[in-house]
Design a protein around this nucleic acid. Structure first.
Length: 426
RNA sequence: GUGGGUGUAGCUCAGGAGGUUAGAGCACCAGAUUGUGGCUCUGGGGGCCGUGGGUUCGAGUCCCAUCAUCCACCCCA
């Protein structure tokens, strides 16, 4: 039975009480992108299914079992984007942005969709902030991109995280290593866990990343891709490390780090947090020098990362970071005696026209209840419109913090409060 | 897709081995003498006990299924 009063599994509402956290995230990220020279790009939330098949890779988990794919009324197979890189790459090609000055640096913020079993820090609709840069293989760019992701976490008040770095090589050295690894592991094949047995053919590199202790032991002395990179890849990796060293950014080389998407080459990195539980990855990314060519474009290199917004917010909450309370209402206008609601509205509108966030009661409540509500709204000031004062074209202005109050002429009310509110915010 | 935990008021939870009108705290609303919030006191509204079957004279309580949720695996953000 479909429950009409519940959001679909793995999705959730971001309620007013939480939305400030999201706005905070977006503000910080936009500011950083501006400083780093990245412009925003917005692509559709769905694309031709084929785009993800070709770019992400048909044997990846994302494509094999996690895509929201549907056929539209024109019989086209479409898929809600499971990640952000492929759509941006598509847009880059579609609009021939390789014809503009390179490199092109862009960022995006938006929802992604993966049909997966929900868990802590994992949703079917989740949100990512990510950047992509097209047009250069220069290693210092790798360092810039990585650094930007670290600055994002810091700007959001996260201190406890680790940057893991690796190189997954290029098609040449990776394929060679892959066969080499399979050869080395072949004799031990029956001693691996069932998952790894499956990985042996599909993605042997991932065996090195298995959480099972028994598998870890079996691969303890196996040769690593990092030691078998081709000259070009090895040189690139060394240069990236050097750039990070120059910047003073600490990192951990994890030769067993693997990325889940096929298009990665050379630099691969992930930022993990110790406070998130099993879903410890705050974000990750890497270089994808052959992606554009794979989907039918020119041979333009690229690099990027994606950060999970939900996970960042969870990490912030776990770290006890909070935001200063922002108040929606500066002034609350209440009525006493026979003063009409319309009269109150007139005053409220006049205040708003002066840039004062004002509001009033809309439930016909008693004076006492109106004040109680104003208190709940955390309004700093309350304007009381009473019969006595109205006769003199005056109103009572009450400071809810100090409890003091005075009579103010109606004509001066708006400009006076505008001044008071502006002063209080400083 | 696999394994385990949990579903009782808006929220956090009680409800001894099945037995009458299902409770608490917080929240919400209203009062505590005439037009004044926070503190206190008093009162009040709210619950197909997730849903559907079954066992029983009788089910919030036992059994099955289902849905949801949480945790872990897989994988990833």
């Amino acid at each position: 039975m479909i429950v009409l009063t519940k959001a679909p599994r793995g999705t959730r509402d971001i309620l007013p009480s939480e939305v400030e956290q999201w706005q905070f995230f977006e503000e910080k990220v936009r500011e950083l992108c501006r400083l780093f020279g990245y412009a925003e790009i917005r692509t559709p939330v769905f694309e031709h299914t084929e785009l993800f098949l070709r770019s992400v890779g048909e044997v990846t988990d994302i494509v094999a079992k996690e895509m929201y794919t549907f056929t539209d009324r024109g019989d086209r197979s479409l898929t809600l984007r499971p990640e952000g890189t492929a759509p941006v790459a598509r847009a880059f090609l579609e609009h021939k942005l390789y014809g503009e000055a390179q490199p092109l640096k862009v960022y995006y913020i938006g929802p992604m969709f993966r049909y997966d079993r929900p868990q802590a820090g994992r949703y079917r609709q989740f949100h990512q902030f990510g950047v992509e840069v097209f047009g250069t293989k220069e290693p210092s760019l790798d360092a810039e991109v990585i650094t930007l992701s670290l600055y994002v976490f810091r700007a959001l008040g996260l201190e406890e995280f680790t940057l893991q770095l690796n190189s997954v090589g290029c098609p040449h050295c990776r394929d060679e290593y892959r066969s080499c690894l399979q050869e080395e592991l072949h004799e031990k094949l029956n001693r691996f866990c069932p998952d790894c047995a499956g990985r042996f053919h599909k993605n042997p590199l991932r065996i090195l990343d298995c959480k099972q202790e028994s598998c870890q032991e079996l691969t303890a002395n196996v040769s690593l891709l990092l030691d078998k990179l081709c000259g070009d890849c090895a040189e690139h990796f060394a240069a990236v490390r050097e750039s990070l060293d120059v910047l003073g950014e600490p990192y951990v080389v994890n030769p067993r780090l693997v990325r889940g998407l096929d298009y990665y080459s050379k630099t691969a990195f992930e930022i993990v947090s110790p406070v998130l539980g099993a879903q410890s990855s705050l974000g990750g990314g890497g270089r994808y020098d052959h992606l554009l060519a794979t989907i039918g474009g020119p041979d333009v290199p690229g690099i990027g990362f994606g950060i999970g917004i939900e996970r960042v917010l969870l990490a912030r909450a776990a770290a006890g970071s909070s935001l200063p309370e922002s108040k929606l209402t500066d002034v609350f206008v209440v009525t006493a005696g026979n003063v009409s609601a319309a009269e109150a509205l007139r005053v409220v509108i006049a205040l708003r026209r002066q840039g004062v966030a004002a509001d009033k009661d809309y439930l016909g409540r008693s004076l006492k209840a109106q004040l109680k509500f104003a208190d709940k709204k955390q309004a700093r000031y309350v304007v009381i419109l009473g019969d006595e004062e109205m006769k003199r074209d005056q109103a009572v202005l009450r400071d809810m913090q100090t409890g003091g109050q005075e009579d103010v002429a109606l004509t001066e009310l708006a400009s006076m409060l505008a001044g008071l509110v502006k002063g209080a915010k400083r």
